[in-house]
Simulated scan of single mutants.
Amino acid sequence: MVFRLLHDPGVHETKIRAHFRSRVQYDGAPVFEHPLLLLGFTNRCGSNLLAGYLRERPGLAGFHEQLNFDFVMAHSAREGIRNFPDYIRHFAAKHPRHGFKASVDQIAMLYRFGITRMYPSVRVLHIQRRDLLAQAVSYSIADQTKQWISKHRKQAEAVYDRTDIDNRILGFSNQNGAMRVAPQVFGFEYECLDYEDLSENALGTVKRACRFFGVKPPGALGAPWIERQANEVNRSFIERYRRDIHPG
């Protein structure tokens, strides 16, 4: 499964290729002076929290999910962008160190499209959660309620589903494994941070991230732009899952 995630095109690559057709490919010399900065993530891993802190730094920008096919297609249509390399140039023109959030299949997509050749190097900062059960429960709840961040309004109530949580744990495990392997396969620089460390020591963790991305670390941080969402529902689902796995 790990190597399939790197080898097989994902939904974003498939739909972006269908949209631009042959105009996805770049096959020239580097055009930018700064490295391509990627925030490698899985759903509910704390990447939005970290991205908000990174955007506060004067030397960084971006770190939104601008590689998602629906965003790519809508933004390209609005801005009159006719090929994918120009889509990347569009954001680099706004800020030289404009980073992107990227799932492992999107990282592989950028490599196959030749986009990584537009940069002198690529740096992948991978944020993961040590507690995969809590992450899986969080994803299961968010996917049902559509409350992806604290600012969103809940659209439905979440229902406990052990099979769903099982599948999400397995998915996160495979994606994190592939995220660790991808930089080795593609020749990218790699650093890994844990969400739990970001929660317990935000300043220290953001300093590590800034050093890896080559910008000056902050002396202090502002208030987080989103709030922690885990509540009693999360805790009850976690406890119920544990009882299902180890009854009695």
Rank of each mutant, 00 (worst) to 15 (best):
F91M: 03
R211E: 11
H90G: 00
R240A: 07
G28R: 06
R243S: 05
F188H: 14
R44G: 13
G248D: 06
H98A: 03
G204E: 00
G222C: 14
R228A: 09
K154Q: 14
G214C: 09
G187Q: 08
T163A: 15
R240Y: 03
Y160K: 04
R240C: 08
L50E: 08
Y53P: 00
H98I: 14
G114N: 04
A102Q: 09
R240P: 04
G28F: 07
L50T: 04
T205C: 01
L38S: 11
W148F: 12
A156P: 05
L133P: 08
G99E: 03
L37V: 11
G62N: 10
F20W: 02
L37K: 10
L38H: 12
I238V: 14
A102K: 10
Q135C: 09
R78Q: 07
K207V: 09
I169C: 13
I115K: 11
Y190W: 11
V181A: 15
L193W: 10
N68L: 10
K207C: 09
F188M: 08
F213Y: 13
R208W: 03
N167W: 10
E33G: 12
L49C: 12
F237C: 04
E227H: 15
L221Y: 09
L133G: 03
L50D: 04
V215T: 13
R82G: 09
V215Q: 01
G99Y: 10
L60G: 00
I127P: 07
Y241R: 02
F91S: 00
I226T: 11
F41N: 13
V31L: 00
L125W: 09
L170P: 01
R21L: 07
E200G: 09
P96F: 03
P9H: 10
N231V: 08
F69T: 01
N234K: 06
A61D: 08
E227A: 15
Q184L: 10
Q184S: 07
L110V: 03
R211F: 00
G187Y: 11
P96H: 05
R55E: 10
E65T: 04
K154E: 14
Y139S: 14
A102H: 11
F32L: 05
D161T: 00
G219A: 12
H98R: 13
K151P: 09
K207Y: 07
R168S: 12
Q135V: 02
K15V: 00
F213V: 01
S173T: 10
L60W: 01
N174G: 02
L38G: 07
Q229T: 14
T205F: 02
S22Y: 07
V24N: 15
E79G: 06
P85K: 05
F91Q: 09
